[in-house]
Design a protein around this nucleic acid. Structure first.
Lengths: 221, 221
DNA sequence: TCTGACCTTCAGGGTGACTTAAGGTTCGTG
DNA sequence: CACGAACCTTAAGTCACCCTGAAGGTCAGA
């Protein structure tokens, strides 16, 4: 049961290299070479997406944004520039990691594996990060050993973020998952709940970061 | 001394993977590929059983049931996702854990180790917490040395909470496990039973906490 | 500076939960 | 087979929790 990876990369040489490396390591790789076909792809079909920002046909950031609206699939961004602004913007749009070219294939591989390994934390049912300890089954949260009383929705929201530690989770998917799945129109309900979670978590609450225009993320320590 | 594991799995690829992973981690694995040979196996010869529910020759649930009648060996069930009814039924039949496919080999490994790490806990028939003493086999509850008379359902509910001390147990799983497994719609029956348990337990009854919108939990002392 | 997105407080109401009482079911006994 | 006791279930009234939308303020991006 190998992990499926979607690679969006226009450069033939680089793409070939990446595909051969990932394939050799047991991944199942789908390679798309331009932005328009990337827009047609279904991100939920993959376990992880490697996205080069420099593409003909569409700007990578747009693709990233569209992927983020429809899926929670982790996106790892490649960029030639060493410009921090691009990095900041891609992370703000919900990218999960960022690799600047040139890079060693081993580095990319390591990042991919690091990202794919995270859901495994979920398998243990207990997520520990910083001073927080979240027991998904028992529905118990501790902050520095102190039990924190959360309501059902508050807990579900925090757990949703924690299960994808460091990743941005869209407002829509949080609403779908925790609140009423068929709810339309905008509402500030989500904000209210997060406001309370942050307050109840005290200083640790600051780790719940707002991803502007996207949703929220729980910062890794 | 390595632990002996019985794997019942018909899929060749998946079976190969699991065997190689477990072997690499020092387990001694016996692999059976169909239901009929699984029925002939002697569960008491193993420390843990990994059982795929989707099998030719016999339905996995039948095998689980038969194993349960002859041995206390922990059984870890594999099944395709989105079969919650199967999950409920297998847990009702005494499965000790449940892993949905697809899963990571590491996840399976973690579950196996978690289960093997507390063989005594599972064997423990007596749970003591605070002033309570709950003998699961004898079905006897004492509160500060005083015997408490509980009906069948009352006892099962208390035991269900006690076996996961501190964890929230959902109303649904309690209904599935203690009351009629295929019951639909809402009902206040559970509340009534818990109301009586609390009353019968006196001051200790306050330790049965309501988890609003979720279920109940027995608070650890 | 302007605009849209987000934060926080607050009060109202919907809904889940508790308790009591009564009807129904099961099981053992004469 | 009839009876009774123990137990499970349902119903109804009440209570308590917490979800939600509104409103006003704050903040980030253009």
């Amino acid at each position: 049961m190998s992990s499926k990876i979607l690679l969006v990369e226009d450069d033939k040489n680089l793409g070939d290299q990446i595909v051969s490396h990932l394939t050799r390591d047991g991944f199942e790789v789908t390679w798309l070479r331009d932005g328009s076909s990337a827009l047609d792809a279904e991100p939920t079909n993959f376990d992880l997406i490697v996205l080069d920002l420099m593409l003909p046909g569409a700007h990578g950031l747009d693709i990233l944004k569209i992927y983020r609206e429809t899926a929670e699939t982790p996106v790892l961004v490649l960029s030639a520039r060493n410009e921090t602004s691009t990095k900041v913007r891609s992370l703000a749009l919900g990218a999960d990691d960022y690799v600047t070219k040139p890079f060693w294939p081993e580095e990319l591989l390591a990042r991919i594996q690091a990202r794919l390994r995270r859901p495994l934390l979920h398998a243990t049912d207990v997520i520990e990060t910083g001073a927080l300890r979240i027991d998904v089954n028992a529905r118990v949260v501790e902050n520095g050993g102190q039990k924190v009383d959360l309501t059902r929705i508050e807990f579900d929201l925090l757990a949703a973020l924690a299960q994808r530690l460091g990743s941005a989770i869209t407002r829509q998917s949080l609403v779908d998952r925790v609140l009423d799945p068929d709810r339309e129109g905008t509402s500030r309900t989500l904000d209210v709940h997060f406001s309370r979670v942050r307050k109840k978590l005290g200083s640790e609450g600051a780790r719940i970061a707002t991803v502007w225009g996207v949703g929220y993320r729980l910062l890794a320590t």
